[in-house]
Amino acid sequence: MDFFTDGLRRGAQLILGGDAEVLGITWLSLKVALVATLLACGLGVPLGFVVGTTRFWGRRAALTAFNTLLAFPTVVVGLLIWGLLARRGPLGELGLLYTWVAIVIAEVVLAVPIAAALTAAAVQTVDPRVRRTALTLGAGTWRAHWAVAREARFALMSGVMVAFGRVLAEVGAAMIVGGNIRYHTRTLTTAVALATSQGDFALAMALGLVLLALALTVNLILQLFQGHGAA
């Protein structure tokens, strides 16, 4: 147990002491997670909305595809993106491999199905009368969609939070396309993996605590929103 408490104590010292490297890694993780969540939701939420609210040929197939992609192994996504961005790959000219942008791209690919599937599920449960009522009261298509989104807002918010959580905790793809380069593409998760393999348990523990704190904050924000909803 000394091993653990020692790790925790040194971890706390690193965080409270404002260790520059730990802060840098934390900031990069947060930046990657926020940008990726924003982009993934920008794509996935409208996509899920369309699939959840409109009837078209192939709709069931689309829903099945989203749900299958939820379980897509992250290392496989990392591998595919690596292949695309590698020097000899189709997008190699962009020189994005081993940059934080590459990590964002991989995380977006992972998070879009989450945002889409959870959005579709959220809007499907909304009473069909919501859209019809908005329409009969003179709303255009967009205002009617907005009325549906408002009704589903708590479920939609949960979807966004789940996507954020997935992106923040992801390690496999970030390692492959980011390369875990110190001061450049080292995120909290890849740093924990590295520190553990190097036997620096204290650093790994410190970074793990930060990751936990971030996840906790996300959940608190979510509960705050839902608390307002219930009131």
């Binding site: 009368r129 019809r132 009261l137 709303a139 298509t141």
Partner: peptide, 23 residues
């Protein structure tokens, strides 16, 4: 068209049998 219907709905209103009221 959809925009024809939108314009029409500005002049026509329907009250459904089990009307929906927003929360």
């Amino acid at each position: 068209s959809g925009s024809d219907r939108r314009r029409a709905r500005q002049r026509i209103t329907l009250v459904e049998q089990r009307p929906f009221l927003f929360a």
